[in-house]
Amino acid sequence: MHVASDTNQWPNHTAAKRERITLDRLLSSGSAIGSLSPPAHYGPHPDQIYEVIGDPGHPIVLLLHGGFFRPRIDRTHLRPLACALSRHGWRVVLAEYRRIPSCPLVSVEDLRCLELHLRSIGLGPSRVIGHSAGGMLALLRTLSPTFDSLPPVEVVALAAVSDAVRAATDLLGCGAIQAWIGGEPQERPLMYAKIDPAQLVCSGRRVAARTFLVHGRYDCTVPYEYSESLLRMTQRSALYSDTAPNNHCCFLIVEGNHFDLVDPYRVEVMKLICGV
């Protein structure tokens, strides 16, 4: 599906500059906003915290930031999006999680522990939205056996790193995936198999609920072909189930770049995220 925009097309050599400008603005806005609520803990580590914004009666969405799992990049730049989602009828849980080089499973385990905690206090999400590396975690929420004991939730994966092996080969983030996983695919094949959405799909794992792959056409951080390719994998793997018609995967492309997808000033993107 193509989403129209009033944004003019731009050549690839300017896309990185545009992404940097957007990210800097989101970081500045997020810092000015400050914590959305007193940070609450779901574990003992300083990064096992979350913030909440939105009316208690609204449906709950869990929001996961990206940053290629680098420890220095946190949730600050997603605060503007969290505020915007709360104005559009959501109660938003903006999560932090551990990002430890060579220990990828702690990030996945944090997502499971956070959701167990949220459900125990009446904040169980009906939707998970993740951007970039957070989009990869969102996909694992619906594909990984780690989450089989939890109720299914809708997933919106924005510019997701949906293929870890390809990301390593392409040197996304200057080798960020190798740093997070702790080696190349041939060095840690079992670990890649556990946390790579593409490999999970190819192994026959089914999405647990509706899953939306949203990507910017001019994304030069995680090219849109990653989402396009994952959709083709789901189709080849017969991921669709006749007995569960709501369990399907959809690919939506936006005229924008990597950070446009989390920019609340992009009205057409906000309509898309809130409307899927």
Score class of each variant (00 low, 15 high):
Q48S: 08
G204I: 02
P264Q: 00
E115K: 07
Y240P: 00
G130S: 04
L116M: 12
C274Y: 03
E19F: 01
R236F: 07
A164K: 00
C202I: 05
S107P: 13
H2E: 11
E225F: 03
W180G: 01
G216E: 06
K194P: 01
G124M: 05
G216S: 11
S132H: 02
S29F: 13
L111T: 08
H258G: 02
R25W: 14
L114S: 11
I49H: 01
F251E: 10
E268H: 15
K17S: 03
E19S: 06
A157P: 00
M191E: 13
H13R: 12
E109S: 13
P46R: 14
V254G: 03
R20P: 01
Y192I: 02
L139V: 04
A198S: 14
P197N: 10
V207A: 09
Y97W: 14
T14P: 00
S37K: 15
T169W: 15
V106S: 10
P46N: 09
C250E: 15
A15E: 06
R72S: 07
T146A: 13
I177S: 02
A40E: 12
V262T: 08
G135I: 00
D163K: 04
E225I: 01
V165D: 02
E96L: 13
L26P: 04
E184A: 11
R87K: 15
L150Q: 04
S29M: 15
A209C: 11
S28R: 14
D163R: 04
Q9M: 10
I273L: 15
G57H: 15
K17H: 03
V254W: 02
P145M: 14
P223L: 07
P46G: 06
L272E: 11
C113F: 03
S5T: 03
P264R: 00
R232K: 10
R119G: 09
D163L: 04
A138Q: 06
D55E: 14
L171T: 10
F259M: 05
L200Q: 13
P11I: 02
Y240A: 13
I53Y: 02
A133F: 01
A32V: 06
R266H: 05
E154V: 08
W10D: 01
P38D: 09
I53W: 01
R87P: 01
S102A: 15
G66R: 04
R79D: 02
D163Y: 05
L116N: 11
P56I: 06
L23N: 13
R166M: 08
E51I: 08
S241M: 15
Y240C: 10
G89H: 11
S237E: 08
M136S: 01
S241I: 12
Q186V: 06
V207W: 05
R232E: 11
R98M: 14
W180F: 15
P39S: 03
L200V: 11
G67L: 07
C113G: 03
R141S: 14
S227Q: 01
S37Y: 13
V52A: 05
F69H: 02
C202P: 01
S120H: 02
L139F: 04
I253W: 00
T142P: 08
L137N: 04
A209G: 08
L213A: 05
E154H: 12
M233S: 13
A16S: 05
R210Y: 04
V267Q: 13
S31D: 13
A82G: 15
Y265R: 03
A138M: 09
